[in-house]
Simulated assay, not measured.
Amino acid sequence: MHGSVGQIRSVLPELVRAELGANVAVCVPYPYLSLAKSLLADTPIQLGAQDLCEHHIGAYTGEVSGAMLADVGCEMVIVGHSERRNYFAETSETAARKVKAALDAGLWPVYCVGETQQQRADGVARDVIADELKVLAGVPTSLYAVAYEPSWAVGTGVVATPEQIAEMHAFIKQTLSPHTCVLYGGSVKGTNAAQTMATDGVDGVLVGGAALSATEFLRICRAAH
């Protein structure tokens, strides 16, 4: 929950001017989606939202449906982010319904999974991830991406080691399919992006706070290229 009209107008044109070679998408807060779409028109940069409602239409005041997101030009949406799970009591069951809603609207869901520090210390990280991945059972791998974001590394400045990342990404691909697109999210910034993306099994990154700075986000995008 960051941003303003001024920030959107400052950051996005810089991304457009950079003519990035990597696949890049930005997921901005709901009020700025139409503005972002206009600034990204005729560019390969994709637009996404940070969440969606599990319901398609109806008396759900304050919610935003997948069809509405598609209507204003969104191509993708984040589902099940750790902050949604931690602060808004979202469960994997909720996420499953949101994934279906996204697919029904023709959106590409980026489904987030990850364990807490305590769960990792208890040796149940794989069990937690396996349970969260059940949401995607039966969904063709070309229709979504998985973002591995250990909650102990989100917004903390702590980044999982390449060994930890490689191990969990391999487990996710083993559980779903070797062709699954798996992103890493967790305090990704310009100084660690290249190493993270060079790690086995990492197909890209889900960037948080670093994307608020055009300079920092461009460093990450160029590392991907």
Rank of each mutant, 00 (worst) to 15 (best):
V182C: 15
H2I: 12
V135Y: 11
R222M: 07
E83L: 03
I165L: 09
I129E: 03
T175G: 07
D71Y: 06
L183W: 01
G66I: 10
E14D: 13
Q7Y: 00
E115W: 10
G190L: 14
R120F: 12
A70E: 10
G114I: 08
S34L: 11
A166E: 03
V205I: 03
D127L: 07
Y148L: 07
L218H: 08
I165T: 07
W152E: 13
G114C: 14
P162M: 07
V205E: 00
G6E: 15
G185W: 02
A67D: 15
A105P: 04
A36E: 06
T141W: 05
L206F: 06
R84T: 05
C221P: 15
V16C: 06
T141V: 13
P150S: 13
L35Y: 05
K173Q: 15
D42F: 03
A223P: 01
T180Q: 09
R84C: 05
G190R: 11
G48Y: 01
S187E: 12
G186L: 08
A95I: 09
D131T: 14
A25D: 07
L206D: 02
P140N: 03
Q7C: 05
M76N: 10
T175L: 02
V26E: 00
V202L: 02
L176W: 02
Y111A: 06
L133F: 04
T180M: 06
A194L: 11
D104K: 09
A211E: 02
V16I: 09
Y184I: 02
G62N: 06
L183N: 06
G138P: 01
P150G: 11
L33E: 04
A89C: 10
E132H: 08
E54I: 00
R126A: 04
L183A: 13
S213I: 04
Q119N: 12
A214W: 06
G3C: 10
M1Q: 11
A211C: 15
V188A: 12
L176H: 08
A214E: 09
K173R: 15
I78V: 15
I57L: 10
Y144R: 04
P44Y: 11
D127T: 13
T156A: 13
G157K: 11
A194Q: 14
L33S: 07
A170F: 05
N86Q: 13
V202M: 07
L218R: 08
I8Q: 01
A101T: 06
N23I: 06
M68T: 03
S213C: 13
A145V: 01
A67M: 11
E63C: 08
Y111L: 08
A59K: 04
C221R: 09
S4C: 09
R219A: 14
V182Y: 06
Y148E: 12
A198Q: 15
Y144T: 00
G204A: 04
T191I: 04
G6A: 11
R126S: 07
A95F: 08
K37Q: 15
T196Q: 00
L40T: 11
A198L: 14
L20Y: 03
E14N: 10
M76K: 09
T161R: 12
E54Q: 12
L15N: 00
A170E: 06
V154K: 05
A18S: 14
E115P: 08
H55V: 08
T199F: 04
A214S: 14
A67Y: 12
K98D: 00
M68K: 04
M68Y: 03
